[in-house]
Simulated scan of single mutants.
Amino acid sequence: MASSSQVKLAVGILSIGDMGLGIARLLRQHGHTVYTVAKGRSKHTVERIQSAKITTLDSDEELVAESDIILSIVPPRDAIATARRALEASRSNDAIKRRSERKGTAALGQAPSLTYIDLNAISPRSAKTIAGIFTAELSPSLPRRLSISRTFSFRKNSEPEPEPIPIKFLDGGIIGGPPSLKQDQSWKRPSVVISGPGIKDLLPESLITLLNIKVVGNTIGPGSALKACFASLTKGLTALSILSFTTAQTAGVLPHLQEHLKEYSPNTLALATNGLTAMPPKAYRWVDEMRQIGETFAEDGGFGHGSGGGQIYDGIADIYKFVTEETVLGEERVEKRKRGTTAEDVAECVKEGIARKKQKGQGDEDLDQAWRGRWS
């Protein structure tokens, strides 16, 4: 596949959030067909799908039948469940038949393989769990969907059950913001880091270039590890900024903090300000991402067994959970920003959330855990 520079693929995306939307637009502008499943999605998501002119399908079975590649771009908590959805769909007789017909292999009784790329912010351990899901033998929890003729026919020459659609799995992550079209009509693109066996055989060079894919390993795990290490610094700093700016706001010294950062550490001020203002619509996704980072540090970095690596990011996850559930910032959407568009307002919103929680009597003990985490 890699030898052709003109291959136009059908790419399925689950699901169409801010990042999925940007990638869909990039792919569509360069001639690739983009599919997604809209059934059961929110009105907000359906509007996003329509705005990007993405082709909608009615089911996961249709998605695995029609797509050459599936990109999983969901909140980390949904990564494993989404992979299971794809696996179950790959066992559907209707999907197998349709994929075989579309690829011209119906006579062989075996549908061509599907490439599934997990681009979620998960730990290497979670990525390996997904790899195991796709390579494991058929389990009782995921039974084959037998055709009527197979179930009830006792003819010796009854048609054999077709094999499930084989799924080739790659592990990855996305570093940077969603793709966006610049004024000069070129694209600003994030780095898509991928690891796994046979990447150059599974992905055409044109797609690798278009999506700005960086191959970081030939096994499952390095892609997720790199994403976790990068996000631990960027989103970790944003969490520390929430603590610092909110405390300074409450103490009445936020302008002085900003003044001193500007003079003595201007890069820190810029990173903190940009991180705080971009954070509100994404905080809900970062709760589980921080826990996955903690798992990466504990398992892959060796910072378990009381060394604090995992516990620190459990605490940071609590901070983002507090922002999401206890402040008005949790209501923000990328396309419709109202609050938290300045660092000062982020601090004020969090301050207000703390005050409301104290008034509800849920106060000091819960808040102490949210701020301190579980590394003490």
Rank of each mutant, 00 (worst) to 15 (best):
Asn218His: 11
Lys8Tyr: 03
Gly252Tyr: 01
Ile194Asp: 02
Tyr284Asp: 11
Ala81Asn: 14
Lys321Trp: 10
Gly301Pro: 09
Ser15His: 07
Leu142Tyr: 14
Leu119His: 00
Thr247Gln: 13
Gly361Asn: 03
Gln110Cys: 12
Ser232Gly: 15
Thr238Asp: 09
Asp94Met: 12
Asn274Phe: 13
Leu243Val: 14
Gly315Asn: 05
Ile16Met: 02
Gly361Cys: 03
Thr45Tyr: 00
Gly315Arg: 05
Glu161Met: 09
Gly361Val: 01
Ser153Pro: 07
Ala298Arg: 14
Ala343Val: 08
Gln359Glu: 15
Ala317Met: 06
His30Ala: 00
Asp58Phe: 09
Ile54Asn: 00
Lys336Phe: 12
Asp201Glu: 15
Asp68Gly: 03
Leu276Ile: 05
Glu61Phe: 10
Leu261Lys: 08
Ala355Ser: 12
Gly198Val: 04
Leu71Gln: 02
Gly109Met: 10
Asp78Phe: 14
Ala347Cys: 06
Pro76Gln: 01
Ser5Arg: 13
Ala355Glu: 14
Thr219Asn: 12
Glu348Ala: 14
Ser180Asp: 00
Ala317Lys: 05
Glu299Leu: 15
Leu276Thr: 03
Ile220Lys: 07
Cys349Lys: 10
Asn93Trp: 09
Gly275Glu: 11
Lys156Tyr: 12
Ile319Arg: 07
Arg25Cys: 03
Tyr313Val: 01
Ser265Asn: 15
Val334Gln: 00
His32Ile: 04
Leu119Phe: 02
Ile293His: 02
Thr296Phe: 06
Val192Phe: 09
Val253Gly: 02
Arg28Thr: 08
Gly221His: 07
Ala317Glu: 06
Ile73Lys: 01
Ile69Asp: 10
Thr296Gly: 06
Thr209Pro: 02
Phe152Thr: 07
Gly104Asn: 07
Gly330Ser: 01
Lys321Ile: 05
Glu325Tyr: 03
Pro281Arg: 08
Lys336Tyr: 12
Ala2Gln: 15
Glu335Leu: 02
Ser206Leu: 12
Ala355Trp: 06
Gly275Phe: 09
Ser206Trp: 11
Trp375Ile: 13
Gly275Ala: 12
Ile220Ala: 05
Gly306Cys: 05
Ile117Trp: 08
Ile312Trp: 09
Arg25Asp: 01
Gly22Thr: 02
Leu87Glu: 09
Ser126Tyr: 12
Val74Arg: 03
Ile213Glu: 06
Thr324Lys: 03
Phe322Lys: 05
Asp60Thr: 07
Arg99Asn: 09
Ala121Gly: 12
Thr247Gly: 10
Tyr116Pro: 08
Gly363Phe: 07
Arg285Thr: 01
Leu207Trp: 05
Ser244Pro: 13
Asn212Lys: 07
Val11Tyr: 01
Arg77Ser: 14
Lys282Pro: 04
Val287Ala: 03
Gly217Cys: 04
Gln369Pro: 04
Lys188Gln: 12
Ile70Gln: 01
Ser113Phe: 11
Ile96Met: 04
Gly31Pro: 02
Arg85His: 14
Val74Gly: 03
Ser59Pro: 09
Gly31Phe: 01
Trp375Arg: 14
Gly275Trp: 10
Ser123Arg: 06
